[in-house]
Amino acid sequence: MKAASKPYLLAAPLVLFLTLTFGLGLGYEISGLTLRHFLAVLGNRDFVVSLVATLSVAAVATLVSNVGGAALAFAMLKARAGGESVRHILQLPVIMPHLVVTVIVFHIFAQTGVLARLAWWLGFIDDPNQFPLLVFDHFAIGIMLVYLYKQIPFVAMVCFDSLRGISHRFGDVGENLGATPWQVTTRIYLPLLKPTLMATALITFAFAFGAFEVPFLLGTPLWRTLPVEAYLLHINIDPDAQARSMAINVIISAISLGLALVYSSALRVVSHVRHSDGDRP
């Protein structure tokens, strides 16, 4: 019925474009690296700490923002007209640059921030130093707040967009057949949303794992995330530091890519099961 080459022809422009730009750019940067640089990076005593810290921050941010974002999207779907208005508002955090959000988080959550001032007026504290440390702290709360502010609305927006075209029909049918809202959510919306959530989770994780500005400006100096380590090596005048910085960037990319591969094969298993059940929407 259809020429087997059709999907290849459709994909060709994008593949060509990405290999010519992204492929060349990356290839050029890693061509000068040797095993020695990787060993130097891996042998640094701070490396494991950095790796664990970066992974944990990215994992927590991903988990919270995707669960929160999906919940918000469900609420918006349920609210119908109100959901559409909120959909407009969600664009605000999505367009706000991370650096600006960093400034705002400092302004609200620092020990002299808006919350601390409210606490003072309410009589909970009488000195800024008594307010809990939420930026530059060892638990990366400040960093996390920036990611959540940006990512919960992003996830909610993408989920809402991918659901609203189709879901009302399914949801209405479900409710007419006597399903409870909880059943509608878990049996109808969630399966429909699974591929979208898989993608947003991957994107949010990769972003939080590779971002440098936010942990650089709001993190504790005690431990550094891998991208911050890479940046500091990059501006170091030691002649070998540039290459080690690049080696860290390659490691960051490799970890993200590895996780994506594991992830997409998991996704394939999931979707295979679904297709054989014959419930493809």
């Binding site: 440098f212 990319s253 890519l257």
Partner: peptide
């Protein structure tokens, strides 16, 4: 298509 998000 996802690669650009994963590489700094």
């Amino acid at each position: 298509a996802l690669m650009p998000v994963m590489v700094p």
